[in-house]
């Protein structure tokens, strides 16, 4: 294709999309970028699935700076995009400022609660999903030591770690859980080199299964685990395919479902507080052809049993964020 053809084609596409801009939904990614193979990418996948199913378009932006959070929200709202979905807790402050100025626009924020009449706040029971993969880690581990590598050290990630540790202890009360955080700033979401170093450090402490809840940093964790021939557990998206046969499973946080749901509900969506847990398919563990050889029947039935007990309320997994403490793990 020549440049000229490309040029004409894109000009036509631009003209078309400009005409259909009204009431399109919009999606705003966090600073990690949409192809982080994890959280943001899950959001992108949900939006893409919606676009393929309905044949409609959506607006999207990858932020470059903090100042753009509010700017992007306002620009999309003023352009008539509705609903506007944002992926990440860091939007809470900007949304709190903006929401009241656009009462007719519906906003959805993921991972954080913003109390406004036109905002839907979606939070996930990550501790429940982490509990399940913790059980699998304990069953797969031969050394009795398993690892956890978090991204940024925030209560949300401690919630992952705490759920995971509870799952491990439920299977093997004597197991050791080694937990490390990559950093204390948002840069910790995208530091695969440090993720790799932490994985090596945990392996030297005897860990033979590591769970990464660290966004883009997790790519380094999974890579090193595969190189060193131990098992790893992915997070948010299904990451089993990254290293087939080396990734035990992935803790699925269905951000894609939340985005898909928000887009489907459209401008008339119900606002308020929404919890996505095991019971409504918000979290879970990933099974596909890449990890079926790793997951035994016994492992699967034990986990499925626990999952139904958590859904029914028979087992309660302690939520770190409810009281900022974890009974089985200290940070």
């Amino acid at each position: 294709m020549t440049f000229k053809q490309k040029f004409l084609g894109s000009a036509a596409a631009l003209a078309l999309s400009a005409g259909a801009a009204l009431a399109e939904p919009a999606l705003i990614f966090d600073l990690g970028g949409k192809f982080d193979k994890s959280f943001n990418e899950a959001a992108f996948n949900g939006a893409t699935r919606w676009a393929e199913e309905t044949g409609n378009n959506f607006r999207e932006i990858e932020l470059q700076s903090e100042a753009q959070r509010e700017q992007a929200l306002r620009r999309f709202a003023e352009a008539g995009n509705n609903p506007i979905v944002m992926a990440g807790f860091a939007f809470a402050d900007a949304l709190g400022q903006v929401a009241a100025d656009y009462p007719d626009t519906r906003f959805t924020i993921i991972d954080m609660v913003v109390d406004a009449p036109n905002v839907r706040s979606v939070v996930f029971n990550e501790h429940e999903g982490s509990y399940l993969v913790g059980m699998m880690a304990a069953k797969a581990s031969e050394s009795g030591t398993v690892g956890f590598i978090g991204g940024m050290d925030i209560p949300l990630i401690r919630k992952f770690a705490c759920g995971y540790a509870q799952g491990v202890k439920a299977v093997n009360p004597d197991a050791t859980v080694v937990a490390n955080m990559t950093g204390t700033t948002p840069a910790a979401w995208n530091d695969p080199v440090k993720g790799s170093e932490l994985t090596k450090a945990q392996i030297s402490q005897g860990a033979d299964v590591v769970y990464a809840a660290a966004g883009g940093t997790g790519v380094g964790v999974l890579q090193t685990a595969a190189d060193e021939n131990i098992l790893s557990i992915g997070v948010d998206s299904n990451q089993n395919y990254l290293h087939p046969g080396k990734v035990l499973t992935s803790m699925m946080k269905r951000v894609d479902n939340a985005v898909h749901q928000a887009f489907t509900d459209g401008a008339e969506m119900e606002t308020g507080f929404q919890v996505m847990g095991l019971a409504n398919g918000g979290v879970g563990y990933a099974m596909d052809e890449h990890n079926e050889a790793l997951v035994s029947e016994d492992m699967k039935s034990a986990v499925d049993d626990a999952a139904s007990k958590i859904s029914s309320g028979e087992i309660t997994v302690h939520d770190y964020m409810s009281d900022d403490s974890c009974p089985v793990l200290s940070f």
């Binding site: 809470a92 402050d93 925030i154 949300l156 204390t184 900022d324």
Partner: peptide, 8 residues
Amino acid sequence: PAGSMDPA
């Protein structure tokens, strides 16, 4: 501030 996840 206590309880905030954002380093701000």
